[in-house]
Design a protein around this nucleic acid. Structure first.
Length: 567
RNA sequence: CGGGGCGUAGCGCAGCCUGGUAGCGCACCUGGUUUGGGACCAGGGGGUCGAAGGUUCGAAUCCUUUCGCCCCGACCA
């Protein structure tokens, strides 16, 4: 390709709203352009990169025996009503009507559709397992699109769905996908971790996210310093916390603690470390058709992890409770404790189970209990509620955990029979008995990966593409296009490499050297060949984008050197 | 969804408070000089000031409504 013909509108200035490097450089480099909030067009070079990523995903998926299909973007709302997600999914689900007032949704994911594809066609265990996948546009009406391609409303995802006769077979496919995703992200050259995750609205039991470790990630992930344990903070576990601080010995008794509503106040007043106190977090739980006040108890030195809390009470959402609502159900804000609490639903963090010598609210204005022991609570009261923090200990090996940022690029789920049951998709098993399918589902954020490649690899001058994903591997820069010798030589190298099927770009634009080298650095091709003044002495330069190092090469030897670099 | 900001040339912005015939930088076009780090000189084209309504002799500027975009948070396979 000649740069003079390439549609790559580069700019010196970034759009003012672009805060992340990937967003700035993809726009400035002429890879993408925005059409609306969370809506992006891919320009020629963006499309090349996109296709390269897509092909890697496709190759690895095909290698596992999964079959590519394509489902419609618009799907009848009826299918979503069958699974129950029409109401459960929330406002991200874009709903629309046709001229006859029939309801449809823009697919944000395709469990329902794929079940419909298989339902009544796969009737026997002999036809299983089956894995169907697609790489298509999805739409989610995000509350707040941002970060360019990282959180758009329209995006491209590879989503695969597998069907199995039993749990064992489903788990086998899950393991195969974990392996496959590892291959995909390794081929892309990314630094990533597979982490334990919460399954969110998709549901199911086991779930793992693939996180690319990056400064600008939106997710907090907990990683062990020593072993391979890693988890999303929403699902992270830790070894039970212990302390060397001595427990305050006291028999159960009630203390007057006037106007002391925070853990800090109470602990200072009673000279107790916050480790030995119980924190009450009051939330309003939202269910599909109701809502109620729920209290969560965690250690005073811990924080409530909201996703864990949602899972514990089975709510769709938790919101902060108003003081008025708290009082209305009979709670005394600042003095809430689990002992003798009856007026509301409440949950207690596992770590408080059977602990002794604790301080907590007495459910009476201006009073706290001391010497509280956590026995005699029903087993169902207990749940994992507390947020893991940096410095906590690993559940697997006991080493320290640290918290880092990650960008989610893949997520694999063991769905079990959830969807097949809800949508009555069944087959006959070996015993001739009707059974709902066991399903798995597996996603890769293909368009998001375009941005992730840059988040993971850039400097202050621009993108740094690796060879697997670069729009072109080499940019041949004619320093002075008016110099005929330079043009002729550059063209000959260009033609020779093109003949050998290398992806090369010839910057033949009538611009000055500085302009072209800046564009090279901004766009970030892996290598550049600079044909300039020194050609008269028979010398040219090769630049490596990653290091910006220049190597002088004799013009006769250039082709050999380049063949080695680009291969 | 809660709070806030901004819509003026392709892009980035000034002008608005204090109404009076719309400006700057970059980009673009023509000619010339220049040619290894986003050049220089001269000339030039381009904007119903997001939209609608109102106040006024007169509105980019004041008022109302509306649409869009963005930021912080909540939310989020």
């Amino acid at each position: 390709m000649r740069f003079s013909k390439l549609y790559a509108p580069t700019t010196k200035e970034a759009p003012k709203d672009a805060t992340l490097p990937s967003h700035q450089f993809l726009v400035r480099g002429g890879f993408i352009s925005q059409v609306g909030s969370g809506l992006y067009n891919f320009l020629p070079m963006g499309k090349i990169v996109f296709d390269k990523i897509k092909n890697i995903v496709k190759e690895e998926m095909d290698a596992t025996g999964a079959q590519e299909i394509q489902m419609g973007v618009v799907t009848p709302a009826e299918l979503w009503k069958q699974s129950g997600r029409y109401n459960a999914f929330g406002k991200e689900l874009c709903r629309l009507k046709d001229r006859k007032e029939n309801e449809f949704v823009l697919g944000p994911t395709h469990e329902e559709v794929v079940v419909d594809i298989v339902r009544n066609r796969i009737n026997s265990y002999k036809q299983l397992p089956l894995h169907l996948y697609q790489i298509t546009t999805k739409f989610r009406d995000e509350a707040r699109p941002r970060f360019g391609l990282l959180r758009g409303r329209e995006f491209t995802m590879k989503d695969g769905y597998s069907f199995h006769e039993d749990e064992t077979c489903m788990k086998k496919e899950f393991a195969l996908m974990e392996e496959t995703y590892t291959k995909i992200f390794t081929r892309l050259g990314l630094d990533f971790r597979a982490v334990d995750a919460d399954s969110g609205a998709i549901g199911g039991s086991g779930s793992k996210e693939f996180m690319v470790l990056a400064q600008n990630g939106e997710d907090d992930i907990v990683v062990c310093q020593k072993c391979s344990y890693a988890a999303n903070i929403e699902a992270a576990k830790r070894a039970k916390k212990v302390t060397t601080i001595e427990a305050p010995q006291a028999d159960l008794s009630k203390f007057k603690t006037p106007d002391m509503k925070t853990i800090e106040d109470v602990c200072n007043f009673l000279h107790v470390d916050s480790f030995y106190s119980i924190k009450a977090v009051v939330k309003k739980a939202i269910y599909i058709d109701s809502e109620e006040i729920v209290v969560f108890f965690v250690r005073g030195s811990d924080e409530l992890q909201e996703v864990k809390a949602i899972n514990a009470c089975g709510a769709i959402d938790l919101i902060d409770a108003e003081l008025e609502e708290i009082q209305k159900v009979g709670l005394h804000a600042g003095f809430i404790g689990p002992v003798g609490l009856e007026c509301v639903k409440f949950y207690i963090d596992f770590e408080l189970k059977e602990e002794k010598n604790l301080v907590c609210g007495a459910n009476e204005e201006d009073f706290h209990f001391v010497g509280v022991s956590m026995f005699n609570f029903k087993e169902e009261r207990y749940a994992d509620l507390s947020a893991v923090k940096a410095g906590d200990k690993c559940v697997c090996c006991g080493e320290e955990l640290y918290v880092t940022k990650g960008i989610e690029v893949g997520h694999i789920f063991q769905l079990g029979q959830k969807y097949a049951k809800a949508m009555s998709a069944t087959f006959l098993d070996k015993n001739g008995k009707s059974q709902p399918f066991y399903m798995g589902c597996y996603g890769v954020g293909v368009s998001r990966l375009v941005a992730v490649m840059i988040e993971a690899s850039h400097d202050e001058r621009g993108c740094m593409w690796n060879k697997q994903t670069a729009p072109y591997l080499l940019d041949i820069i004619i320093s002075n296009p008016k110099d005929e010798a330079q043009s002729i030589y550059a063209l000959s190298i260009y033609e020779a490499l093109k003949k050998e099927k290398f992806e090369v770009l010839l910057d033949d634009r009538p611009e000055r050297f500085g302009f072209k080298i800046k564009d090279y650095e901004l766009i970030g091709f892996p290598y550049a060949l600079i044909v300039g003044k020194e050609l008269e002495e028979g010398l040219v330069e090769i630049v490596e984008r990653k290091t910006l190092e220049k190597t002088v090469v004799k013009k006769e030897e250039v082709l050999d050197v380049l063949r080695n670099l680009l291969a």
